[in-house]
Design a protein around this nucleic acid. Structure first.
Lengths: 358, 358
DNA sequence: CTGAAAGCGCTTACAG
DNA sequence: CTGAAAGCGCTTACAG
């Protein structure tokens, strides 16, 4: 039986309707049964070489493509991973860290015949579980944000799906069963930045922080503080920059610099905050790096556009996404995660916003 | 019958397996048949108020969620849109214009209970049709790139799917049936930039262009040339910047400025090229905007990080993505596209990289 | 090496 | 207002 494929409803007005070729059509043409076609195509069972060849010929001639929908129903496997990105910004892909993670994940999945379905949601939407319940997937990946209780609520909702779950850039080991986390070594990044600045003579160091400190931010700050605690005469100050936007950080930095003695160095919680602080300092007449050294975190495109080029830490965002794909597909095969936590390295990347030593 | 949902294969090692509740379970508990449950839940047919209420109670108690896979097979509708992004960069989301389009599309689709499946591919992959053939969707959206023949080949492969197709940022009316295009008014953007510069006294104008000019680029350039052609004493030069990267553009600009008299203004084919040109000019001692005015296109994050803040044209990328969702879902309902081409407006956004007039 | 039968979970005419 | 039957396209034991 030949019918149309697709959703054109009544074929009215649909010019080039593609015919749906099913496994039965192939079977008939090849003079075998449907299950032999299935076995031949999936390499299961023992099918004679000649039969396989004949079937392949028919498949090509008819342009047969197995119905993913039928297979999904039969096998109750989706070959699909769902990715939930929790972000206050409805333009949730407007963040290079996120997009690098998404690209790393989707590229890996595509190579392994899996699809990715992405869903953005706000932290406050956690009650609307339907936002991801209709993503019929084999496993989930989540990037969280929001208050600790909002994050916890979302993890709880995700866990209810009963699917393997991978959390990105979380710091603590998950308590949920069938859940793993992948993160980059933000602590190491923070430590390298701190040591770099100390070696270049910085003693009074500020760190521009978002009001709401998410795990990666806290790891960076903690590492900086630890390094400074081991060096005599250092002084650390965490500066609350509100919503961590460019404008807020610029304003807070301007105010802070106007209040008293300027620091030797300013660390931005991320590149954007570092750049905002740099521009604020420059606009007040401070020379970078002679008067104030500046460093950031993440090393996305932007860092090179500023003058001087920013000292920063190259993130592992793409690798994090890929690793999520690796672990999820492996988990699906093995029946359980082989590791509860994977930490990926970051790369320190010196620029001209900190002093040179030779 | 109660079974597990999902792909856990042998349930070995799977702690909290979620039970699969089917429409039959709900029917049994509610004391009706499966089709009455179906009718009640989908608001089809005439079901008694009381029956509907009873069914809803059971649905909630059992936590029943209809199987999307079964529904897809039965209805041969996927409630899924596929998006193919053709890009030389494997990190294909590493472009704010693209991500804004993706976000606009996925947000709209989610609101309308559709899922989006994204696939990145290189222009040279057009032969590997399997890259998107397994997407099983109701409609496709594509962002092209590559040589004209590569673009044409990809459109051809996409058309073979027999699905409604929306092309983003293409300039010419599609010849394929069941295909529409959505683009922003790059011509208007180019014209506004050109008029702005001319009003500010610029006569010798360069435009930094990628070696391979894609449709939007050509539209911008053509519009600039048209405006300049109408003003006496103007002089236009398109400068080939190779692969249009920051480094290439910087190098080409440096060389060009060293060869002879500098222009009054430089237009970047996009913001990145504009910024590279600006930095090159500044590094050669030219003052911006006093000696050379600079303008770009797209107005993504980056434009504000540079000093002086870039004059540019705010793009409609998010709106383009959303419009693709609107048109595709409408097409699916109506049986055909209501418009073959939709052009979205752009917004001129003056910065400090061009002169002020008061 | 190959096939008949059953069933994945849903919905659509069609009766009653 | 409600239900029995058929079927979407595939694959899995199980026979032969």
């Amino acid at each position: 039986m030949i019918r149309e494929r697709g959703t054109r409803g009544p074929a009215v007005g649909t010019p080039a309707a593609v015919k749906l070729v099913t496994i039965k059509d192939v079977a008939r043409e090849a003079g075998v049964s449907a299950m032999t076609v299935s076995n031949a195509l999936n390499g299961r069972g023992r099918v004679a070489e000649a039969t396989v060849a004949r079937i392949r010929t028919v498949v090509d001639r008819l342009g047969y493509r197995p119905s993913v929908a039928a297979r999904r129903l039969r096998l109750s496997r989706q070959w699909t991973i769902g990715m939930v990105i929790v972000d206050e910004d409805p333009d949730f892909l407007n963040d290079p860290f996120t997009t690098a993670q998404v690209t790393g994940l989707t590229n890996y999945l595509t190579t392994h015949a899996y699809s990715l379905i992405i869903r953005g949601m706000r932290p406050s939407d956690f009650r609307t579980t339907r936002l991801f319940q209709d993503i019929e997937a084999d496993g989930m990946v989540a990037v969280l944000s929001g208050t600790p209780s909002q994050r916890q609520a979302i993890v709880g909702e995700l866990a209810k799906l009963g699917l393997p779950l991978v959390l990105l850039q979380e710091q603590r080991q998950p308590t949920e069963p069938d859940c793993a986390i992948i993160r980059q070594d933000d602590g190491d990044g923070g430590a390298q930045v701190a040591r770099h600045l100390v070696e270049r003579g910085a003693r009074r160091i500020w760190m521009m922080m978002p009001h709401r400190e998410w795990p990666a931010m806290m790891a960076r700050k903690a590492a900086v503080e630890t390094v400074l605690a081991g060096v005599a005469g250092t002084e650390f100050r965490a500066v609350d920059c509100g919503d961590e936007s460019y404008d807020a950080t610029y304003a807070v930095t301007t105010r802070a610099l106007g209040e008293g003695r300027a620091p030797d160095a300013i660390i931005g919680g991320n590149d954007q905050m570092a750049i905002a602080a740099m521009r604020a300092a420059q606009d007040l007449g401070h020379r970078i790096p002679e008067d104030i050294q500046i460093a950031g975190f993440n090393a996305f495109n932007v860092w090179r556009y500023v003058d001087p080029v920013l000292t920063t830490v190259r993130s592992a965002a793409h690798a994090i996404g890929k690793q999520a794909g690796i672990m999820l597909i492996d988990r699906l095969k093995q029946g359980r995660f082989q590791a509860g936590e994977v930490v990926l390295p970051v790369t320190f990347q010196p620029g001209n916003s900190t002093l040179t030593i030779d």
